[in-house]
Design a protein around this nucleic acid. Structure first.
Lengths: 264, 264
DNA sequence: CGCAGGATTGTTGTATGCAATTTTGCCAAA
DNA sequence: TTTGGCAAAATTGCATACAACAATCCTGCG
């Protein structure tokens, strides 16, 4: 029994020690909005807050700048970035393009139908969860997990370290992640229908890859991402909903009631 | 006077001082191969060589890791990465996909024909340079400059900061840059023909955007990138040629004599 | 002679002190 | 009241010292 395709180059992109602590805690602070967008990130108090010294903190700052959550200031130092709805939409569009490419490459580079087993497995996990006839509430947690697995396996099938890098970079912004807006419809009555549509697309993508129909696979994966964009539009109208999405605190809605800009 | 404009738009992604010096010099050392692929990067001697201290050097190391030129080691520290032909091909493919998206967005988001002026200007600069009837040698330097301008203006027209980010990341690998393999054909007799073809694609992309034919613009931009892939194949067979391309020292050819591994 | 254990050396990760530059606050002058 | 400039304060950037960790080599024992 062979675990499927191992990574070609096991690159340990993982920091360790204080630097990792700073990175994780600060990222959490940013995504939760505890350190607000527009706010200048002061190193010394932040280092104290994170219980690390300035040196590893500074490394983490540079990393987060590359991830896109921070921006450099002309005079030095960093600010917390924010994103307007157009940015979010473009981020999702971009993910769609990259996933489309992954799907196409998966189709073009498929060697044996057996290689599709992991992808198929994730699809089959989701299948019963989205059945419209299925009684009770949707198990969103299980769906999200399987959904992310699906997208991860799809990326595996593309067999392209370069594409993987690009995808990781694109999904560093949390609201660009495949499942980011799934939970926004947890309470909506039509949620099951939407998930059913998404699942239909999953199956279609799988089929297209299996038949080596690269162009179709690409188009389907792109359209799949449009679903997220649609959910974004819904969420933008509902402040509470927006607060539940991962990086929701970073989304700037152009003055719904009044412009609020507070430092700390 | 709190008449603040909200935009944090102007992102000065520019380092300064010692950090910048370390970044530029080290990047140069990496691209030229003076610090060879596979080699572990020792901080202390390198700091001495670059005439900076370890602190700014370390920041530069993290940056270069994000750019993809370095990789972290499990025990700590960094190695110089290398890339096999399949990686290069995928990098070019990826650039094609992103530029295709830029072209499509440019078409979809075009407001006025006047906005095309900068793109048109760069096309017209190249026009006389590639005329087959044109006497004398091709002015490659001028062509490369105008070509890069073309691709930069195209990215402008997409009006998408997110796409810009992705593109910058993808082109951090120098051989993925639009002009990287142009110079490899400087001596070839058919160079003018190839450049003429490329220019025809430039014109076609411009026209498609002008007519707001997004799908066509995307397909053309993708095909345009295929030209670079073709030049890559040529360069892979010629060691001397490969040495002239920007990041050529980073390309690993599995065996000296014409061994080519098909990436599919 | 081989292997294991330990000391030693070299390297990276972290902390802190210092210098330089930017920002801020204040006061004076138009 | 506004503006210009100057000084003080705070913050970033840099350098170095120290600590922890890993690899290596030597030595002693089996």
């Amino acid at each position: 029994m062979i675990d499927h395709a191992p990574p070609i180059q096991p690159l340990p992109k993982v920091r360790q020690g204080q630097q990792l602590k700073a990175l994780l805690r600060l990222r959490e602070l940013l995504l939760s909005g505890e350190v607000a967008p527009g706010e200048r990130v002061a190193e010394i108090p932040l280092a104290a807050r994170l219980a690390v010294s300035r040196t590893p903190l500074r490394l983490a700052l540079v990393t987060l700048e590359h991830e896109g959550l921070l921006a450099m200031l002309p005079g030095g130092g960093f600010v917390v970035r924010d994103f307007d709805p157009a940015d979010i939409a473009d981020a999702i569009e971009l993910r769609g393009v990259l996933e489309g490419t992954a799907a196409r490459l998966a189709a073009e580079r498929l060697t044996s139908p057996k290689a599709l087993a992991p992808l198929l497995a994730s699809v089959e996990v989701m299948e019963p969860l989205v059945r419209i006839a299925h009684p009770g509430l949707v198990d969103f947690e299980a769906y999200v997990a399987a959904n992310e697995t699906f997208h991860a396996r799809l990326l595996d099938l593309a067999k392209s370290p370069m594409l993987r890098r690009a995808m990781e970079q694109a999904m560093a912004l949390p609201f660009a992640s495949p499942s980011s807006f799934v939970l926004t419809q947890a309470d909506r009555p039509e949620s099951r229908e939407i998930l059913f549509l998404a699942q239909a697309q999953h199956r279609a993508i799988l089929q297209a890859i299996e038949r080596r129909e690269g162009a179709r696979a690409e188009a389907l994966a792109r359209e799949h991402a449009q679903l997220a964009k649609q959910n974004l539009q819904l969420a933008l109208g509902d402040t509470e909903l927006l607060a539940t999405v991962p990086g929701g605190a970073l989304i700037r809605r152009d003055s719904p009631v009044g412009k609020r800009r507070h430092a700390s």
